[in-house]
């Protein structure tokens, strides 16, 4: 259970960054941390003691395997995370070109 709790602490660290940081770069990094924590939590739920990876091979006797379903879901989720990170970075770069700052309080003040 302590593994689950540590993973949850990682998620809370990401949440703390999203809520309190004023720097756009730090906010993007904390969204990344949130994604890591969620992916890792899903894979932790799938683990089974004394079992092997879910790949069949010839000449290997049947042994218990870990749950392949969360692995399949997380595989696509990681790739999508890369796409969303690229989009966030593009937005941040455009905002920097327009306002010349990464501080979100400044950006809110400079309207139009």
């Amino acid at each position: 259970m302590i593994v689950y709790l540590l993973c949850f602490i990682l998620l809370l660290v990401g949440l703390y960054g999203v809520l309190t940081k004023r720097d756009l770069i730090k906010i993007i990094l904390s969204i990344g941390i949130l994604g890591y924590a969620v992916n890792l939590l899903l894979i932790l739920f799938a683990y089974r003691n004394n079992s092997i990876y879910p790949i069949l091979s010839k000449g290997k006797e049947i042994s218990p395997m870990v749950d392949p379903l969360p692995q399949a879901l997380v595989l696509t989720s990681i790739v999508i995370e890369l796409g969303t990170t690229a989009m966030l970075v593009a937005l941040a770069v455009k905002l920097f070109e327009k306002y010349n700052t990464f501080d979100i309080t400044e950006i809110r003040r400079l309207k139009g």
Binding site: L40, I43, Y47, Y53, Q71, V74, I78, E81
Partner: peptide, 17 residues
């Protein structure tokens, strides 16, 4: 930790990511 949790595909994808 994906490698320790018996998910080699995920470990490779995460590394590339």
């Amino acid at each position: 930790s994906f490698l320790f949790l018996q998910a080699p595909d995920l470990a490779i994808v995460q590394f590339l990511f």
